[in-house]
């Protein structure tokens, strides 16, 4: 088993957003998160990545095994594509960057400063970073934003290869990636807000 979440409750800005959430992720499995805006997809992913503590509940298997990709890619505009990737490869201590450049067709851009890339190219570079982390669980927040169809195919291919190697992925997305993945709809887990005190009642 890769990752297990049991009876998890999370909050954003002090207000509970999701409650009673339980699921498990097996090696080789991908799970797609669905749900309307504001349901707490990003908050859930940040909690699983260890960036914020849950209200209560259990998260097993996430420590030091998660590669997280958020809305921003963590790129330095004055460093070249190679330098950006090389930095993350060294920080995670995981091998070479050639496979990552290959997977997202970045070889032609390798010496360009990241600041001069288009939005979609930056996104590809940000996703290539996942391949140099060597981490088994990918946690991806809207990974396909600003990608064109061929880049989305590259991404889906990279995820498929990752699953084949025994990794797993948790993806919040609204588009169909063509992956053989289960879908987890978060709407039924929406937290009920605690009933407010009858504030006006005190004045009548």
């Amino acid at each position: 088993m890769m990752l297990r979440v049991q009876d998890l409750a999370i909050a954003r800005g002090g207000l509970p957003v999701l409650d009673n959430l339980s699921f498990a992720l097996e090696p080789g499995q991908a799970l797609i998160l669905r749900g309307p805006n504001g349901i707490g997809k990003t908050t859930l992913l940040r909690t699983l990545a260890g960036l914020q503590p849950p209200l209560h509940g259990l998260i097993e298997g996430a420590d030091e095994r998660v590669a997280y990709a958020a809305h921003s890619d963590g790129l330095k505009p004055t460093l070249t594509v190679t330098e950006n990737l090389q930095f993350w490869a060294r920080i995670f201590g995981a091998g070479t960057i050639d496979a990552a450049l290959e997977a997202y067709d970045l070889h032609g851009l390798a010496e360009r400063p990241a600041g001069s890339l288009s939005a979609g190219q930056k996104r590809r570079l940000g996703l290539a970073r996942l391949l140099v982390t060597g981490r088994p669980i990918w946690i991806l927040d809207e990974p396909t934003v600003s990608l064109d169809t061929s880049a989305v195919a590259m991404f889906a291919g990279a995820v498929r290869d990752h699953l084949k190697r025994g990794g797993s992925a948790l993806i919040a997305t609204h588009i169909d990636l063509g992956l053989d993945a289960e879908v987890l709809d978060l709407a039924p887990f929406r937290a009920t807000l605690p009933a407010l005190d009858d504030f006006d009642g005190a004045f009548t």
Binding site: R46, A49, L51, A67, Y68, A70, H71, G74, K76, I91
Partner: peptide, 9 residues
């Protein structure tokens, strides 16, 4: 640019 989030993980 999100680097801190990534460094924290």
């Amino acid at each position: 640019d999100g680097t801190l989030d990534l460094l924290a993980t």
